[in-house]
């Protein structure tokens, strides 16, 4: 199948912030034998599958998309990739984008399928209909593997990388690490290009996976998976059981109030390279992005498309 990702509803900063979200999916689809148009310049008719990444602050864009789908019917396969928690008020009720959630609700009723990175298939299907939503889990992708893993401890010159933008919830961790003489580089996902983040991550002793704020319910698959592919140990804030909590198996997970202590222990132990590379090997052995993508394609709409191709 041909998967055409339409990203024209995102501005430049938004596009930059999605690199580590989208690239593994592109890779997984191609590793599973499909063709990907990663930056589609329009919508394509069946048998191509159009995927729009959720962010719909603009009523007019949504209206035109709904109209296109209504007029095209089965000749246009339209799917959504939902990356955020529907119940995350920090995102879905952001005053800067007051129409985001309402427009998502309008679109969900019209699309052919929904992929979600977070465990909310039931919530989504209650809106879009049964058999339309699938959890898209991240796994190991050979193409996503950093080609120059740093295996010498002395080449890991940054103590910690706080992966994600700064926030009042994350800053105390950075400050506490600084008080213990540990340097922390905070990435700005909407600013730094991939060649920069790849360099910074590869030189880190550890990556911190800390949620933006206390309302966030799930771990960030994209942060954890990017760090694993660079061979860097992840110290993750443990947010408790969830269907994607299996990712914690590849991290040093602990509660928020233990993150600083755990990070310092790891840095001072000198074992950060060994642990990072061991986590990568375990992740490589136990997971596969291609398999996970194949699982997300077990929806009726894709089965119909596959039959049609035969």
């Amino acid at each position: 199948m041909i998967f055409n990702f339409y990203l024209g509803n995102h501005d430049s900063s938004g596009l930059r912030g999605m690199a580590d979200l989208l690239v593994p999916i592109f890779n997984g689809l191609e590793e599973a034998g499909h063709n990907v148009m990663g930056y589609g310049l329009g919508f394509r008719p069946v048998p191509a599958v159009n995927v729009v990444v959720e962010f719909f602050p603009d009523d007019a864009f949504v209206a035109s998309l709904l109209q296109l789908k209504a007029s095209s019917g089965d000749r246009l396969i339209l799917g959504l990739l939902c990356t955020e928690d529907l119940e995350d008020a920090l995102v879905m009720q952001d005053p800067a984008n007051p129409r985001r959630l309402a427009n998502l609700m309008r679109l969900l009723k019209a699309v052919d399928f929904v992929w979600t990175l977070l465990p909310q298939v039931e919530a989504l299907e209650s809106i879009c209909g049964p058999g339309k939503a699938a959890l898209l889990e991240y796994g190991f992708s050979p193409r996503y593997l950093h080609p120059r893993l740093r295996t010498k401890p002395q080449s890991r010159t940054l103590d910690a990388v706080m992966y994600g933008n700064t926030s009042p919830y994350r800053q105390p961790i950075v400050d506490a690490l600084a008080a213990r003489s540990l340097s922390t580089f905070v990435t700005a996902r909407d600013v730094l290009p991939m060649f920069v983040t790849a360099d910074v991550l590869s030189r880190a002793k550890l990556v911190l996976d800390v949620r933006r704020g206390p309302g966030v319910r799930f771990p960030s698959p994209t942060r954890i998976v990017r760090a694993l592919h660079v061979g860097v140990a992840v110290v993750a804030e443990d947010l408790g059981p969830s269907p994607i909590a299996s990712l914690y198996r590849y991290t040093l997970a602990c509660p928020y109030d233990q993150l600083v202590e755990r990070s310092e222990q790891l840095v001072r132990s000198g074992l950060f390279v060994d642990l990072g590379l061991a986590a990568l090997e375990k992740f490589r052995a136990e997971t596969s992005m291609a398999r996970n993508v194949a699982a997300a394609l077990r929806l009726p709409v894709f089965e119909r498309l596959a039959r049609r191709a035969v």
């Binding site: 596009l15 930059r16 690199a19 930056y39």
Partner: peptide, 15 residues
């Protein structure tokens, strides 16, 4: 290039 991130530009270059 000041607008499009590398993963988008690389994709279009390849296609």
């Amino acid at each position: 290039q000041e607008f499009f991130p590398s993963y988008a530009a690389d994709d279009v270059c390849r296609r």
